[in-house]
């Protein structure tokens, strides 16, 4: 009994914290069903303007197209980043080479360079390649990140070398070891890395804004900004767009939630 009482302050704290965390989500949900004026008056109850907001949003912007662009970018980035960074992380840990720690240090140092410093040269490269307005130009710079390589390398530490040696003895080639043993064992890390990459790619704003000039290839975050760029912002419509833009990341996270938690804490089961 006493033990349970001791837990009360902890749960109370978590409870309050939960309210703080969930309130913005609740406000977004409710506001998507309210008129602009109701949103500005901070109305906290659901309203009847959801359909009207839908109609206005789809009249003002090509939402499906933006969703398509965002999805193509996020999925393309995630798949490629997982393949490339997992091979890199695996290689860094499993193979032995004198220069690998130096190379890793260089990679980690590269993490310190702010994106603003590389943005202009990056734009020049893609402009010369004729890839302005191409989704490819958004995907490529994001498929190899020091953070993911580090995450995979750290997780690979727990990858049992005995299995590796046994596999080699059994005559499996290196690529097959990676594909048939490493990937299934590292499921949790892949899930965590996948969620992080998908969310970052989906929410990325600055680089797509720079390289995707035409409205036809705009992504969801760009569409949301465009909604508040005219003479008048319709906050109900804006909240609906924010809601729609949040759904995919919520779905991805919910599907991979369990593995995500395991992956971040580095557990292998």
């Amino acid at each position: 009994m006493i033990k349970k009482l001791r837990e009360v302050p902890g749960y109370a704290f978590l409870g309050i914290w939960t309210v703080f965390s969930l309130f913005p989500l609740y406000f977004m949900l409710v506001s998507a069903t309210n008129t602009s004026q109701d949103v500005l008056s901070s109305r906290l109850l659901p309203g009847g303007a959801l359909f009207e907001n839908f109609v206005k949003l789809f009249q003002a912007q090509d939402v499906l197209r933006a969703m398509g662009s965002s999805a193509a970018i996020a999925l393309g980035t995630t798949v490629l980043a997982l393949v490339i960074c997992s091979i890199a992380g695996y290689g860094f840990e499993v193979y032995h080479s004198r220069g690998k720690d130096v190379l890793m240090a260089v990679l980690l140092l590269a993490m310190m360079i702010p994106f603003a410093a590389t943005m202009i040269p990056l734009f020049q490269v893609f402009a010369k390649l004729g890839l302005v307005n191409s989704l490819f130009a958004v995907i490529v710079p994001a498929i190899s990140t020091p953070l993911l390589i580090l995450l995979f390398r750290q997780s690979s530490r727990a990858f049992p070398t005995e299995i590796l040696e046994a596999a080699r003895v059994d005559g499996l080639n290196e690529l097959s070891i990676y594909a048939r043993i490493y990937i299934p064992t590292m499921r949790a890390t892949f899930a965590a890395a996948g969620v992080i990459t998908f969310m970052t790619a989906w929410n990325n704003y600055l680089w797509p804004r720079v390289i995707l000039i035409k409205n036809e290839v705009q992504t969801m975050p760009m569409l949301i900004v465009n909604l508040s760029a005219g003479y008048v912002t319709d906050y109900g419509v804006l909240m609906l767009a924010v809601l729609l833009a949040s759904l995919p990341t919520v779905v991805v996270f919910l599907i991979l939630q369990r593995q995500f938690a395991n992956g971040i804490t580095g557990a292998i089961k």
């Binding site: 602009s36 004026q37 500005l40 008056s41 901070s42 005219g230 003479y231 008048v232 912002t233 319709d234 906050y235």
Partner: peptide, 30 residues
């Protein structure tokens, strides 16, 4: 956004700004 809210929700009874603000004023249909 709070600034727009002050006159749209009626807590402030006026504003001084560029004429482009008239679009936001008219959000307050009531």
């Amino acid at each position: 956004d709070e600034y727009i809210g002050t006159f749209v929700n009626g807590s402030v009874a006026g504003t001084i700004n560029g004429v482009w603000i008239s679009g936001s004023l008219q959000t307050a249909t009531d």
